[in-house]
Computed example of a mutant assay.
Amino acid sequence: MDARFVGIAELVEAPSVAVVVDVMRAFTVAGWAFAQGAEKIVLAESLDEALALKARHPGWVALKDGPPAPGFDAVNSPGRLRSVDLGGRTVVQKTTAGTVGALAVKEASLVLCAAFVVAEATARVLRARGCDGVTFVVTGEEGRADEDLACAQYIAERAVGADVDASEFLRRAGESRAAAELTERVRKGVHHDDVALCLELDRFPFAMVAALEDSLMVLRPYAVPSPADGTSN
Rank of each mutant, 00 (worst) to 15 (best):
T183R: 15
T183W: 11
T183S: 08
E184S: 14
E184Q: 15
R185P: 01
R185T: 06
R185N: 15
R185W: 04
R185V: 02
V186I: 11
R187N: 10
K188M: 06
K188G: 00
G189W: 08
G189P: 10
H191W: 01
H191D: 14
H191F: 02
H191R: 07
H191A: 09
H192W: 12
H192P: 15
D193F: 12
D193S: 15
D194T: 06
D194C: 08
V195F: 05
V195A: 01
A196E: 14
L197Y: 03
L197I: 13
L197T: 06
C198E: 07
C198V: 11
E200N: 09
E200L: 11
E200D: 09
E200S: 09
L201Q: 12
L201P: 03
L201C: 05
L201M: 09
D202C: 01
D202N: 12
D202L: 00
D202Y: 00
D202H: 02
R203M: 02
R203H: 05
R203A: 13
R203S: 03
F204A: 02
F204Y: 14
F206V: 05
F206G: 04
A207N: 03
A207T: 14
M208C: 12
M208T: 03
M208L: 08
M208H: 05
M208E: 01
V209I: 15
V209S: 06
V209Q: 14
A211E: 15
A211M: 11
A211T: 12
L212M: 12
L212H: 04
L212N: 07
E213M: 04
E213Q: 11
E213G: 00
E213L: 03
